[in-house]
Amino acid sequence: MSQNEIRYSKEHEWVKSTEQGLFLVGVTEFAQEQMGDVVYVEMDDVGTSCNQFTKVGEIESVKAVSDLYTPIGGEIVEVNEELINNPELVNNDPLNGGWMLKIKVSDIQEINNLMTEEEYKNYIQQL
């Protein structure tokens, strides 16, 4: 997987590589549209280890709460603190400013369990 390439999970999270071994995680445009206006984002603490597809946080919109599942396993090394005061970034800029976690990946092969951009586009069209 090359720098800035993006992969998607069935739960509508994305992951993309930044520096060596570090990956950003967030939710997709499709997910933010389904959730509606996000008002709180609660994420697990920095230092927490997580397995692929396990719950690492909660995203609360005006009408409902959704769990955030990490599309890749590893250690949380940073959370996006901007989201505490500006949760609307998740709606307005889900793929960039609305990123949620930075993860130090333990097994890069897990990327192969995720969808490419094209596969994900096909996936959401069938929903």
């Binding site: 509606g36 206006d37 005006v62 009408k63 609307e88 709606n91």
Partner: peptide, 9 residues
């Protein structure tokens, strides 16, 4: 309709 432009707006 549950929403148009968004609940907060």
């Amino acid at each position: 309709p549950i929403q148009f432009s968004g609940i907060i707006n």
